[in-house]
Write a protein that binds this DNA or RNA. Sequence first.
DNA 1: TCTCCGATAGAAAGCGCTTGCTACGGCTGT
DNA 2: ACAGCCGTAGCAAGCGCTTTCTATCGGAGA
Lengths: 367, 367
Amino acid sequence: MTVTLADVAARARVSPATVSRVLNGNYPVAASTRERVLRAVDDLDYVLNGPASSLAAATSDLVGILVNDIADPFFGIMAGAAQTQIGGPGDGSGRAGGEKLAVICNTGGSPERELTYLTLLQRQRAAAVVLTGGAVESPAHQAAMAAKLAKLADAGTRIVFCGRPPLPEGDALVAALAFDNRGGGRRLTEHLISLGHRRIGYVAGPPERTTTRHRLEGHREALRAAGLEDFPAGGGTAGGAGADGDRLVVHGPYDRRSGYEATLELLRRAPDVTAIVAANDTVALGACAAVRDQGMRIPQDISVAGFDDLPFSVDAVPALTTVRLPLFEAGARAGRLAMGKENPPPGGIATIAAELMIRGSTAAPRG
Amino acid sequence: MTVTLADVAARARVSPATVSRVLNGNYPVAASTRERVLRAVDDLDYVLNGPASSLAAATSDLVGILVNDIADPFFGIMAGAAQTQIGGPGDGSGRAGGEKLAVICNTGGSPERELTYLTLLQRQRAAAVVLTGGAVESPAHQAAMAAKLAKLADAGTRIVFCGRPPLPEGDALVAALAFDNRGGGRRLTEHLISLGHRRIGYVAGPPERTTTRHRLEGHREALRAAGLEDFPAGGGTAGGAGADGDRLVVHGPYDRRSGYEATLELLRRAPDVTAIVAANDTVALGACAAVRDQGMRIPQDISVAGFDDLPFSVDAVPALTTVRLPLFEAGARAGRLAMGKENPPPGGIATIAAELMIRGSTAAPRG
DNA sequence: TCTCCGATAGAAAGCGCTTGCTACGGCTGT
DNA sequence: ACAGCCGTAGCAAGCGCTTTCTATCGGAGA
């Protein structure tokens, strides 16, 4: 019923081995033979059996891309960019070669699903895996991830981190592209401080994520440098769990609603804040809505800033001051690394710069 | 080196067949044996070899989700929703059963890539394929798609359309969930007309896409019903190619930039337009920017409307009047259909209603 | 007590492809 | 004219799993 290699071989009057070699193109085959085989493939409308091929060759052409939330353009942009360097044709060669299947796996931010997808990918003998976005910092999960990744790595799967810090014990088994979240966060808050803001609210992401912690650390660095720390207790770098002494920081998920509610909470706790920094642009949009619903104007009454510089941020009114992350470029580079088209950065890890984008949503506080 | 079924069997002192049966759980195995096997699996950290399994069983646990542009939340939301119904655990069962690998494939809107991905999926013997978003209307491509899908279908792959009209020759081999783009477009324009607008510009998507055509047709229906058609030549339903007689319609890609530029063009062509309808919300954002850059206010000087009701639309200033499509619900339903968890709608096709969302970006034209 | 049957477990035959090794011509070198 | 090679093609042995068919064991029914 279904056409197999043997059928093609028969029609082309060659052995199956020859057909296989024509299709994989890594063995000398006479031009005339090749042509005959190719015609047979066409005539029969033959499609290679992937599982059989992967089984025999002990590798597959699957590349997995793990994302926290595919409905969020932050991940969509990176994943799409990575896929341009991996998937199907369009990357030059028509037939053989780069025909990998890039697959995007949506973990929903759940550590368990992350692990499950990794197992599924391991099961498929994936050629590479790209992990995007921040990681969860629970030691148990980190250990499980390290173990899983080590296993994948020595099964020959290439591992690339994109916008994610390398694992603590991260041996040289991965290439990592990390965003400078800390630096970006610092510069953003410095900007606000230089504008004259002294009471700055912060709507943070979920406390257990590296991204949240790094951005928040940058914010605090800037505050500290300006002598503006307002949180009493020790805390410091450690958990980043927003010790309750820190009244100007509210944690929540990376979504609009959290931005809205956290901002209301912030305004209640400290009606004198003159600026609000959001964990990312989506959260910032929610913050803007809350500020407006309270009858205040942006930026005259209160400044608002975001992070990421997603496409819609420039269209907010007023346009959002934010920190630009080169998501597309990073994703594409991660894709290339996954394909082995590009050499890993020295030391296996590269930090990607974040650029401050000053726009209309921030201004000096009312005198 | 890598652990195989046989290793597990040896350790559990049973035959490979038994291990396989325990893992697949569709054959009676004594509880004590099962437990012994499971322990061995654990001890050895065994991971099934997917390709081998798929080869032997002639099916795989891959489900493909094709999208036009994963960086666009329109697709991200649907794909993510579908994946919740398909991927990994979290859907109840811990171990066996629904452990499918949902993979998202980004076609970039290119017909060739769409076909290539389908071939790749066919090669992997995918269990199901979900196609989202509008299709390209070229007859050649339609035919190629129909042929490919037919082949997939009789290889046992389940096919689901989501937000995509069924193929012309679409036999009962697919379940289709189609958005009521025409109806939504019609109601949106009716709303504008009822507000008093008479000169309405339209920034359409790429002419060759079904989505573009349907939305535009809805728009024209409304105009016609109100006696406002302004395009001279016949045209009508056919190509939808924006016959050049139609000066109030400009086509372009579904992105912000196109919205910006097309709006400028529209304003140049017809400075007296009082409203602009965009192909979708992203385009609408660009349109808003253009309107503002021309020194006009929304909605006082000109009304703007979008389509889709993406999450950021409510946060635009003023909030965008648009047509809400239940993307998440549709995606989830498509996922369920792909998994065979839900019965296909009668006739294989269901039309999903679009709801008009009237917000601040539209108002009566200045008297 | 003997036969028959249900419940389990094992043996073994592939699934369709890749690839190391062998085989076969025709050339080149001497 | 003969040995030795290079360039090609074929053989056959798996890759790790699923599944059909068969074997075995312990009762239940007669």
